[in-house]
């Protein structure tokens, strides 16, 4: 169905797409991740990033962080659809709720020698990336930060000898005392 929008309710904002970082607290039952992913693929929503891990001491609940984009109406739909999944406890739109921290970790392998090798170290230093593995011809850097910082790091490494990237996807949490 076309994502056409009509009626009299205010929908001036409805047409421009935005990015949303959504955190979902779920019961850690089998199939719950498939359910969330199936919801996105089955209904044609975007997933820009997705992370999941248990967050309770007893492993009873997991937190899924998903970065998605769409019009306001689509994002509201995504939240409502997530909210009605049986194992879902809570859905929070961190982007909408106010300031939040979103961080990602990346492992970046650079294969380079000579001048490029030292150049890659200089860049890593300015990004506060750590060297976690070294051979005579390569480095693996570990870098944590906002997704665009990691993007920038990767772009700088590309001409120098970028060989491989492994990224975790975003973990996000609201600033301040409020909890999900």
């Amino acid at each position: 169905m076309p994502s056409e929008v009509d009626g009299t309710a205010s929908r001036a904002v409805a047409d421009s797409a935005r990015t949303a970082t959504i955190s979902v607290l779920v019961d850690n039952e089998s199939g719950v991740l498939a359910r969330v992913i199936g919801l996105f693929s089955g209904r044609g929503y975007n997933i820009d990033s997705l992370t999941v891990a248990p967050v309770d001491d007893d492993g009873g609940r997991s937190r899924i962080n998903v970065v998605t984009s769409g019009t306001e109406m689509v994002i509201d739909q995504i939240k409502a659809q997530l909210g009605r999944l049986v194992p879902v406890h809570r859905v929070a739109d961190l982007t909408q709720q106010g300031p939040h921290v979103a961080r990602e970790m990346a492992l970046v392998k650079v294969v380079a020698g000579g001048e490029n090798r030292s150049e890659s170290l200089r860049i890593a230093e300015s990004f506060r990336a750590r060297v976690v593995d070294t051979t005579t011809g390569s480095f693996v850097f570990e870098l944590t930060g906002a997704a665009d910082k990691i993007d920038a790091f990767i772009e700088l490494m590309r001409p120098i000898g970028l060989a491989e990237v492994s990224r975790t996807g975003i973990a996000a949490i609201a600033r301040g005392a409020a909890t999900i």
């Binding site: 929008v5 009509d6 009626g7 009299t8 929908r11 739909q77 409502a80 909210g83 009605r84």
Partner: peptide
């Protein structure tokens, strides 16, 4: 709630 504002925006 997922039926609301799905196809038609409501007041």
């Amino acid at each position: 709630p997922s039926n609301i504002n799905k196809n038609v925006a409501v007041d």
